[in-house]
Every structure is written in structure tokens, then in C-alpha cells.
């Protein structure tokens, strides 16, 4: 009996180690942008805080306003479109405000204010898609839109844990809940339209278009001389409509270019991104790390099968011994 014991321990140890994915801590390859990826460029310097995007978003997606008795009584209305202080299961996009000191000048870090529109970033390498155990969240191979299938979803909320931007929302207030997130109005895109928020944005702060072209547009804006006039496209890059505005002093970086592997929702601002609640994130997604660990451990199921073989042998021998004892 002792002859095999050491050997067994070795097999066991090797199997355990491999199973747990020690062999590497490096993330897998970065994922690439789908060929016809569409996205939104949000330019905070153009945003005037009119919230038309919030209203249109609810209209287009058939979502209710926020019902808050106190607010409703004070305004004598029912269901407030821009109610709620954050993204939630009834709000797919939200204009938030950065304030400092006297809040007197727009797009200034000190004594200024700035707007930021929060919505799904449509990551190129989305954690939520990697996390979902039932493929309820998928990334469209053509448009790159991160979409949700309630028919598959079991409501485990792992996507919420995984998302670095806290985007997927869950209907905690419903007996039969769903996950709610921005799907870039894919039902509108199917009809040849554009996302509601971009459609109605009066200044072009929310601009729809192919991600690569949006990226070029964003770079052009950063390069433009602050103080000069610039013809900003409105609604979508292809709309042909423009509005002239004065170029602000942009932060010379496009938020979403690299964050967590890159996103299809890009942001420009004159106020540092951290002040707008946009976190500094690593260039590789957490999903790439966790997938690498997992796939190393379970590569071809070799490790688990080897381990199982060893275990079967050991258990068989032990139980046999038991019954003969």
C-alpha cells in the first residue's frame, strides 16, 4: 500500500494545482473591436444638461417615469421622466453633474461644473458577457452591442458584480425581475434609426456613429485649438447636420479608448475624468484574467480527468480495503 501512496499524493497535488489554475496569472489576448462596431461619442463640453436624452431614452424603450409621491405632489405630475439620482432599473442613461466651489463656470475643474452622461459603455471585452453563466448577455458580433436575453437569464446578478461601471441593473422591486441595461436602442438600429439619446441631443453632445470614425472625430476635437469655432456634427456622423460651438480645452485623452480593453461608448471632457466618476481602469479587462485562469485549469479537461482517474483508483482501493477489513 505504501508503494503507491507517495505517487498518489503527487498526482493529487499536480491535479489540484493545475485545476486551480496556478500555472499562469497573465491575461489572455485582448479582444478586438467588431468590424462594424457602432458607438456613441459623448462630449461633455457640449452637454447643456437639458436631459432630452433621458426623456427620449424612456420613450423609445417604453420605460415608465419614476413614481415618487412626494415629488409628484410638489410638481403636480405623475411619473417623472428624469426622476432618480442614478442609473437604475428604470433608467438606462443619466445626466449627472460635477460641482466645485461656486459652480459658476462650465467645464472648469475649480469653481466650475460639468455634466456627464452615464450609460452602458458597451465594452469591447465585456466582463458581464464573460461572467454570464447562461449567455443571457452577449456581444453582437457585427455591431458590438452588448445585449440581453431575458429568456436565458436566471437572475444570478453575477454581471452586476463583474461590471466595472456598475451598469446592469436588476429589478429588485419585482416578483418576476429582469436585468435592465442600455442596448444602444438596437430595435431602432434595426429599423435604420439611431439611438434615442443621440437622435434628440440638440448640441451633438451624444453622437452616434461607427466607433472608428467616432474615435477619429474625437481626436480631431482634441487637436482643435481651444477658443476657436468648430462645426460639431449633431445626432449622427452621417446626419449632415452640424452646430457651431466654441472648442473647449479638452483633456487630451479619450475615455474609453483603453479602459478595460476599450469601450464603444467614448467620452470627451474638459474636466478630469476621475472628477466625473469615471474611474482609472486597467487596459486589460478583468474578464481576460479570469478566463485565462479558468481555461488554463480546464484546458481540454485534461487536468480534471487526470485528477479523476487518480481519485477513482485511490477510492476504489480504499473502499475495497474497507470491506475486507
Amino acid at each position: 500500500m505504501n508503494i503507491d501512496r507517495k505517487q498518489f499524493f503527487k498526482v493529487l497535488a499536480a491535479g489540484t494545482v493545475a485545476t486551480s489554475g496556478v500555472s499562469t496569472l497573465f491575461a489572455r489576448e485582448r479582444k478586438l473591436l467588431p468590424k462594424n462596431a457602432v458607438g456613441i461619442l459623448y462630449d461633455a463640453t457640449l452637454c447643456i444638461g437639458c436631459k432630452s436624452c433621458e426623456v427620449e431614452c424612456k420613450k423609445v424603450n417604453g420605460m415608465s417615469g419614476v413614481f415618487d409621491t412626494k415629488l409628484e405632489q410638489s410638481h403636480n405630475v405623475s411619473g417623472i421622466w428624469d426622476g432618480g439620482n442614478d442609473l437604475d432599473s428604470k433608467t438606462l442613461n443619466k445626466i449627472k453633474m460635477y460641482r466645485n466651489g461656486t459652480s459658476s463656470t462650465k467645464d472648469k475643474e475649480t469653481n466650475g461644473y460639468a455634466f456627464i452622461k452615464r450609460a452602458c459603455m458597451h465594452c469591447i471585452d465585456p466582463n458581464c458577457v464573460s461572467a454570464c453563466p447562461v449567455t443571457a448577455l452577449t456581444k453582437d458580433p457585427i455591431t458590438g452591442i452588448v445585449q440581453y436575453d431575458k429568456g436565458a437569464c436566471i437572475g444570478c446578478r453575477y454581471c452586476q458584480v463583474a461590471c466595472p461601471f456598475n451598469i446592469p441593473k436588476f429589478e429588485f422591486d419585482k416578483a418576476l425581475p429582469e436585468i435592465v441595461k442600455c442596448e444602444m436602442c438596437k430595435h431602432q438600429l434595426d429599423k435604420g434609426g439611431i439611438p434615442g439619446c443621440c437622435d434628440v441631443c440638440p448640441t451633438g453632445a451624444s453622437l452616434f456613429g461607427p466607433v472608428e470614425k467616432l474615435m477619429k472625430e474625437a481626436r480631431r476635437r482634441i487637436k482643435a485649438q481651444p477658443g476657436t469655432k468648430y462645426r460639431y456634427p449633431v445626432s449622427s456622423l452621417e446626419s449632415g447636420e452640424t452646430q457651431t460651438h466654441t472648442v473647449q480645452k479638452y483633456i487630451s485623452y479619450i475615455y474609453g479608448e483603453k479602459e478595460t480593453g476599450g469601450t464603444q461608448y467614448l467620452i470627451l471632457s474638459a474636466v478630469p475624468y476621475e472628477k466625473l466618476g469615471l474611474l482609472k481602469l486597467p487596459e486589460k479587462s478583468a474578464a481576460s484574467t479570469s478566463e485565462k485562469i479558468q481555461h488554463t485549469a480546464y484546458k481540454g479537461m485534461i487536468a480534471p480527468v487526470v485528477l479523476l482517474g487518480g481519485l477513482l483508483y485511490a477510492a476504489h482501493r480504499s473502499t475495497k480495503q474497507d470491506s475486507t477489513e
Binding site: V129, S130, A131, C132, P133, V134, T135, A136, K150, G151, A152, C153, I154, G155, C156, R157, Y158, F170, E171, L176, P177, E178, A287, E291, Q294, H295
Partner: peptide, 19 residues
Amino acid sequence: GRYWQIYNILLPKYVNLNS
């Protein structure tokens, strides 16, 4: 949340090996 379709996790068509 959606316990009534929890069996989805065992259905091959929904498997996500990355998860």
C-alpha cells in the same frame, strides 16, 4: 431573480464556458 428558469444553467444551448 429568475428562479423559474434556473434550469437554463444546465441546458447546452445556454452554456458559457467562459463563465
